[in-house]
Design a protein around this nucleic acid. Structure first.
Lengths: 153, 153
DNA sequence: TTTATTTTAATTGCATACAATTTAATTTGA
DNA sequence: TCAAATTAAATTGTATGCAATTAAAATAAA
């Protein structure tokens, strides 16, 4: 491909992934609205339903988000009564995020979210699984470069 | 898969795409900084290099962005001297975006961006092409649902 | 021990992103 | 024609998202 061709939007994988990510979020939005959550709040809750009582740092590593994004987001979820934010007694630098009873209870309603969104999309299971595995490959291909870069290698 | 399993982050294709999109943007950032552009500004310029003198609406349709995002972004690019914003004489509702000489000239520097980013990533060409085609499939699978929804079907 | 370094969140500043509303211009329909 | 409906941008408000800095706490080093 010429470098001229390489500049066309339709040829750019980066744009395709970017556009898909936004379209997916758009699809989730009405379903998540029933739970009173935004998409980012939803993935934060997903992480907490998997593992509770974690620090902001650990949550950020799992969600690829930093404290600049998480701090206000977690304050909103706390205001909604879904979780508590309290310093770790053993290490006061860390803030431990713990689900409240309401936060744990919300998981029941969330169980049907993936199915609902899937049904609203025109996607079939094979495509979904193939894409997930390829995104996993892509992520591992992208991350070492970034990580090595940060370590100055 | 149980609905319990379906809530795990690692099983969610939506999260995989979301995470990859962010990682890709992160990879582009240092390269684009040399052009003085952010990622979103870059894709806007890409669209304009392909087709100049377009309305905000047309640009938005190609980039999947609305005027709330584009208006301030285009004002910044105008302030940088890369384009001009002027009402269409034939239809004053439309704002025509036209590349300036500097805006057109910037394309020369941009020609090497895709190659640079590609080299910094650990991705091979086959993976890239496969993902692009799958993102295309995914996009067409997602969009009819949304479009039909908007038309009230 | 006591200073220097590192670590963790929070904060600040800037740039998206999008829903909802508003404003101005154009088109439609009675 | 001329009011009603539609269209295109801009604006407003809320929510990310991240780089860079700050502040507090813990750890390492002298």
């Amino acid at each position: 491909m010429s470098s001229e061709e390489a500049l066309k939007l339709e040829n750019l994988t980066c744009f395709a992934v970017y556009a898909c990510a936004k379209e997916i979020t758009r699809l989730y939005q009405p379903v998540l609205k029933e739970l009173g959550l935004t998409y980012t709040q939803y993935i934060a809750m997903l992480a907490l339903w998997e593992r509770d009582a974690v620090s902001v740092k650990e949550l950020g590593e799992r969600l690829y988000l930093d404290s600049g994004t998480l701090t206000p987001l977690l304050k909103k979820l706390e205001a909604q009564g879904l979780l508590t934010r309290a310093r770790d007694a053993g290490d006061e630098r860390q803030l431990l995020i713990r689900l409240s009873a309401a936060g744990k209870a919300l998981k029941e309603k969330a169980l049907e979210v993936p199915e609902k969104v899937f049904c609203q999309s025109g996607v079939n299971v094979e495509m979904l699984l193939k894409i997930r595995s390829q995104m996993g490959e892509l992520m591992t291909a992208l991350q070492p470069a970034g990580a090595a870069d940060q370590r100055g290698e």
